[in-house]
Design a protein around this nucleic acid. Structure first.
Length: 657
DNA sequence: CGAGGGGTTGTTTTT
DNA sequence: CAACCCCTCG
């Protein structure tokens, strides 16, 4: 590997930049941008121009002669990285494209393909998403006979969550079960056993789940001197965004990556930490200066996004925060209108209010895509979705049910996976079960047979019931011919699979026309890739976030859509007008957060994140009561957080019919 | 051994 | 209000 060394850095002086950074940034931002040697912790409040700062920092680095390929930008989603680097490119030209950027997970995936062999990971590993992991766990659970217990064993999805939480928090299974899933305490031992088997299975089949990606990247950096020195000498300028939402493995990775060059900046806001359920530690950001000596701390506290009134209300909410990370966010904008506190009769009335108000704002010239409705959990929006459909208001929903979770798309992907890895047991079982006359037993037999065969796609020698033979032959024929052109663009392979799958789809689902369209949508995504491996790896690392409904919506109407989003998915974004719905104790804060003070505090930060998404208009609404069938209780109290916000900072709205 | 029916779950948030 | 599981029938 060669390393480029540029003399440009010394040659250029401040006056030679194309961009007038000092003019375009406020003094604090400029501080963070102009200095890129040495460690920096940047505490960036909501709407303080954090993204802008990062973009200009990368631009300035490149303008100073730093090799763009030595810059690594770690962000929370890959989309965030992509957008930022596009803007860098826009500012200074194509060099911006050479900067490495992505999530910790995607970075891990890339590095492990290249250097994984140092710790025994083959370059051809596949990535498991949560559903894949569940399926494998289910398989092993059945083999171990744990499903036939007298007392109920947790469901596959729950087990997956338990395992993931254990790895994210780096705690033993038993402890996770005791503290978060006490109802399954009696199965602790079996769960440990299952977890061991699961780990062994992944190892044997070269499968990595999300947690493994991080775990092995850390292991690589820690244990392989050669890999570490190659990686750290390539990436000499590290920036990590949303650092408050990293877990301890990610923090250790960051420290190892930045430890040699010391040129590391982490950016974050402890008041916006909302991912502790998956192991995020606010501690990472707080401990950072202690780990990197001479770390400079830069605070961005001027908010450019929201009106004074919105900011006052948000600050008021955080004043009562149990843990005192005091923020001093200020704005020089006008006060604007007070945020609305809207009491509605019920869920239905709330939906009607939101829809009517949205239409009113639209009359005033605010575009639909400048408005968003935010909620704690995605099912809170069901009623509203009905109302929007009724009134023909186009919307896109983020979070909740994912496009790829639809059964028919999983079927298609399973076929592609088998092509890529003919020994992928879960995918084989899935596609074999689609054939008439094949059940779990036959499918397992077939898999065991072909596992030992040099021609895994040749199913002709298989013994099965007569009813099944025709289907098996078709499958075999399709896979064999697709395998012959396995190097073709994934879109082509997808086409072959779809042609085969359409009759099955038609027979299985009444609503097959709708589902056909989903497949077309998948094909559009596939077109962006040249190799099947890349396509499949990408689907796991960054599943398309649009819901099925959204994909089905006609692509007309100049793309102007209202956004419905979980607060988690709305992180980092902003809209002119924001509605926060179902601010009802039990819904938000969520019933399941009542147990501990820490969980409640996270709900508070979540509301803070939601409120600070709004630039001009904010309305927080709640139905006066809701019957919750899940808990069997009646929620009838407005969110406790609404009570805590200083009453003079909100305006109460009355609904009349 | 597979298919299909009925009863029974348990529901945050996501890379 | 699904998905999921289990059981019985064909």
């Amino acid at each position: 590997m060669t390393r480029t060394f540029s003399l440009g850095q010394a040659a250029k002086s401040a006056g030679q930049f194309k961009i007038d950074y000092e003019q375009l940034l406020n003094p604090r931002q400029y501080d963070a941008v102009k200095e890129f040697q040495g460690p920096i912790l940047c505490i960036a409040g909501a709407g303080s121009g954090k993204t802008r700062t990062l973009i200009y920092r990368v631009a300035r680095m490149i303008e100073s002669g730093i090799d763009p390929e030595s810059i690594l930008l770690l962000t929370f989603t890959r989309k965030a990285a992509r957008n930022m680097l596009e803007r860098v490119t826009h500012l200074i030209g194509d060099e911006g494209k050479q900067v490495a950027g992505g999530t910790y997970h995607s970075f891990a995936s890339m590095i492990l393909r290249k250097y994984g062999h140092h710790i025994g990971i083959p370059a051809s590993f596949s990535i498991l998403d949560e559903a894949d992991s569940s399926d494998i766990i289910n398989l092993i659970r059945n083999e171990l006979g744990f499903n036939r217990k007298e007392s109920r064993f947790p469901q596959k999805k729950t087990i997956t969550q338990i395992f993931s939480k254990a790895q994210n928090l780096e705690k033993p299974i038993t402890e996770i079960v005791d503290s978060f899933f006490a109802q399954f305490a009696e199965h602790s031992k079996d769960l440990c056993r299952l977890n061991e088997e699961f780990a062994a299975y992944k190892l044997k089949n070269a499968l990595l789940d999300y947690d493994d990606l991080l775990k092995y990247l850390y292991k690589l950096l820690k244990e392989s001197d050669e890999a570490r020195s190659r990686i750290t000498s390539k990436y000499r300028y590290i920036m990590a965004d949303e650092y408050q939402d990293t877990n301890s493995v990610q923090a250790r990775i960051t420290i190892l990556l930045g430890g040699i060059s010391n040129n590391i900046m982490v950016v974050g806001d402890d008041a916006q930490s909302i991912y502790s359920f998956r192991g995020a530690r606010v501690g990472n950001i707080i401990e950072f200066p202690g780990i990197f000596k001479n770390c400079r701390i830069i605070r961005l506290e001027r908010n450019y996004r929201s009106t004074g009134a919105i900011l006052d209300a948000a600050n008021s909410l955080m004043e009562k925060a149990g843990e005192g990370f005091k923020k001093n966010l200020f704005t020089e904008r006008d006060k604007g209108e007070l945020p609305a506190r809207v009491k509605c009769e019920d869920d239905q009335e709330q939906a009607m209010f939101v829809a009517a108000r949205i239409l009113e704002l639209r009359e005033q010239g605010i575009k639909l895509d400048q408005m968003a409705v935010l909620f704690r959990s995605s099912f809170h929006a069901y009623q509203l979705e009905l109302e929007l459909k009724k009134r023909n208001i186009p919307y896109a929903k983020w979070g909740g049910f994912k496009f790829l979770e639809a059964g028919h798309l999983k079927d298609i992907i399973a076929h592609l996976r088998v092509l890529q890895n003919p020994y992928d047991q879960v995918s084989w079982l899935r596609i074999l079960l689609l054939i008439d006359g094949v059940g779990t037993h036959t499918a397992t037999d077939i898999f065991n047979h072909l596992k030992a065969s040099p021609e895994p796609f040749d199913l002709n020698a298989i013994k099965a019931r007569p009813k099944a033979t025709e289907g098996l032959q078709k499958l075999s024929k399709m896979l064999t011919s697709a395998a012959r052109i396995i190097q073709s663009p994934p879109a082509r392979l997808l086409e072959i699979v779809s042609d085969y799958y359409f009759p099955i789809l038609k027979a299985r689902f009444d609503d097959y026309p709708r589902r056909f369209k989903d497949v077309d949508q998948l094909a559009l995504i596939a077109e962006k890739f040249e190799r099947l491996t890349d396509f499949l790896a990408d689907l796991a690392l960054e599943p398309p976030r649009d819901s099925v409904d959204d994909v089905l919506a006609p692509e007309t109407d100049e793309n102007e859509k209202l956004i419905l989003s979980t607060i988690h998915s709305a992180k980092g974004l902003e809209w002119h007008s924001v509605f926060i719905i179902s601010a009802l104790d039990g819904r938000f804060p969520s019933f399941s957060s009542f147990k501990t003070e820490a969980d409640l505090e996270e709900e508070r930060r979540l509301l803070y994140v939601a409120m600070t998404r709004a630039s001009e208009n904010l309305a927080i609404s709640y139905p006066s009561q809701i019957w919750d069938p899940a808990t069997g209780s009646l929620f009838a109290r407005p969110s406790r957080f609404l009570e805590e916000i200083n009453g003079t900072l909100l305006e109460n709205w009355q609904i009349t019919r």
